[in-house]
Design a protein around this nucleic acid. Sequence first.
DNA 1: TTATGGATTAGCT
DNA 2: GCTAATCCATAAA
Length: 209
Amino acid sequence: MATRQHGLRILARKFYDRDPRQVARDLLGKVLVRRRGKNRLKARIVEVEAYLGEGDAAAHAAAGRTARNEALFGPPGHAYVYFIYGNHWCFNVSCLPDGIAGGVLFRALEPMEGIDEMSRARHLADVGNLKVLTSGPGRLAEAFGITRQRDNNKDLTSAQSDLWIADDGFHPPRIVACRRIGITKAADLPLRYLIPGSPFLSRKQVGLM
DNA sequence: TTATGGATTAGCT
DNA sequence: GCTAATCCATAAA
């Protein structure tokens, strides 16, 4: 029996217990939900990237298990949050069984609910500017108040959690796979997945497949 | 112990 | 289009 919250079906652990490439694809169109007291933030996933295990030179898991990337090696459906370029948090969900590394990076969302609160979290003067709210990994983490201290290794499959991912019945009309952004190693693999035409993508699609 | 570079963003030219 | 900002994990010494 799937867990439901306000008509949203929370994705169960088995959803994440698969190859990150498959999970990434299937995450497109799903909804990221953050509960903050009586308020709620909701946004649809429009762009993600798959990061594989120790064979993927671009993955944080490439060098093996460390304190930093522990969440990637743990059980599926948990948050992996890391700090980058001295400024930004990036949010991932772990895939594959306990002991095997893999994850999906959230790169862009389409805001649905809690716009005012997201704008405040992003320190934006113009509340109407939805495009810069959650289009980019650092931006969406800031909008959702995601930090390592607060969310790393958090279970995203529980209704008790304040952060989870749900299916609201939406299915993307199309999905495109292309090259990942901002990496130098293993840069040619088509592991970036997006909903083509979405105004909320972090960048235009480069190359394609 | 020191050096290097990164799964980025905002602001300026 | 270009680059500074700014921290931390990892590599090198």
